[in-house]
Design a protein around this nucleic acid. Structure first.
Ligand SMILES: [Mn+2]
Ligand SMILES: [Mn+2]
Ligand SMILES: [Zn+2]
Ligand SMILES: [Zn+2]
Lengths: 148, 148
DNA sequence: ACTCCAGTTGCAATCGAGTCGCATCTGAGC
DNA sequence: GCTCAGATGCGACTCGATTGCAACTGGAGT
C-alpha cells in the first residue's frame, strides 16, 4: 500500500534509503541539519552546524552532499537576491513550493504560498509543453515597514 | 508632454543622459552591446563583445557598469539554473518581464510572457503589502523535444 | 564475523566569478 | 582650455565552489 501523497516532510534519510543511496556518518549529520533547519542555510552555516554533530565533516563533503540532494530534487537552491554576498541558500523541498521575497531595506526574507503560482506553473507546462522539475520565484523589493 | 509609457526599448544611453550619469568611451561600448544583444550575456561574453568596440574596456569596468545598470533597474540578473557554471546572465529590462525556462536536457533557454505572472505579482503586492522592485521566475525542466 | 570493493571522504590545491585599492586618466561643466 | 569629481586599468585579492588523489568505510555477499 503506497504512503499518502502528502508524505511526512523531513525524512531525507528515508529518501536516501528508498533510493539505495549509501548512508555515511557525514551524510547523516548533514541531512539532520537540513531536516531540522528552520531557515535558509548557506553552505558555510550548514558546514558549521553539521560539524557540531560530526566534527569530521569537511567543506567539500557538504558541497558534494548538496549537489546530491539537488540532483534528487530534495532541496531547493536560492539566491535570495544576493542580499548577502554571492553564495547560495538551501532549504528542504516541502510539499508545496513557495515564493521568496527579500526586503532590500531591512534584509528580511518572507515566504508566500499562492494558488496563482500553481496555476502559473500549470500554464507553463501546458502552453509551453515544458515538464517542470524545479521552479524558483524570487522577488526583491520593500516590505510593509520599509515602504513607509 | 510625457513620452508614451511603452517607451522605445533599447535606449540605455538615453537613460544615462536623463539621469545625469556620466558617459564614457567604455560605458558607451558596454551599453551598446547590452542594447543590441539578442540573448542573455554573462560578464565574460559581455567583456569580449565590448572589447571589439573599444579594446581598452577592462573586466572590472564591465562589472562596475553591470552594478550600475542593476542599481538603476535597467537590466535583470539571471541564474538560468546554473546550467553552465556559477556565473550570472544579464539582459536589458523591457516593458514586460518574462519567465525563463531552462531545459536540463538540451540547455535551451525559453522565455514566456504571462498575464497570470502579472496577476501573481499583483497578489504579492496586495496580500503581503510588499512593494516589488525586481522579480525573477526561473524554471528548470524538460522541453517538448527532450521530454519524449 | 570476515572479506571486499565501489563509493565516499578529508585534504590541499585549484578554479573562477566578482571585488577592491590605488595611481592615473577623462568627461563635461565652467 | 581648466578643473576635479568621478571613472578607469591594473593587479592583487576575496570567497564560493570544484577537483585529484590516497586513504577510508558502508553494506552486500559469503
Ligand atoms: Mn546565483
Ligand atoms: Mn530573457
Ligand atoms: Zn524591510
Ligand atoms: Zn530540451
Amino acid at each position: 500500500m503506497p504512503l499518502p501523497q502528502t508524505e511526512m516532510p523531513g525524512r531525507l534519510q528515508a529518501h536516501f534509503a528508498e533510493r539505495g543511496i549509501r548512508m555515511t556518518q557525514q551524510r547523516r549529520a548533514i541531512l539532520r541539519v537540513m531536516e531540522t533547519a528552520n531557515k535558509h542555510l548557506d553552505a558555510a552555516h550548514l558546514l558549521r552546524k553539521a560539524q557540531k554533530l560530526d566534527a569530521s565533516v569537511d567543506r567539500s563533503t557538504v558541497y558534494r552532499t548538496l549537489k546530491l540532494l539537488k540532483r534528487h530534487g530534495l532541496i531547493d537552491e536560492l539566491d535570495l537576491m544576493h542580499i548577502n554576498g554571492e553564495g547560495h541558500y538551501y532549504e528542504r523541498k516541502l510539499n508545496r513550493d513557495h515564493i521568496h521575497m527579500a526586503c532590500l531595506g531591512c534584509g528580511k526574507i518572507m515566504e508566500f504560498v499562492s494558488d496563482i503560482f500553481e496555476k502559473l506553473k500549470g500554464q507553463v507546462e501546458k502552453d509551453c509543453r515544458f515538464r517542470i522539475v524545479v521552479s524558483r520565484l524570487e522577488i526583491g523589493g520593500y516590505c510593509a515597514e520599509c515602504s513607509k
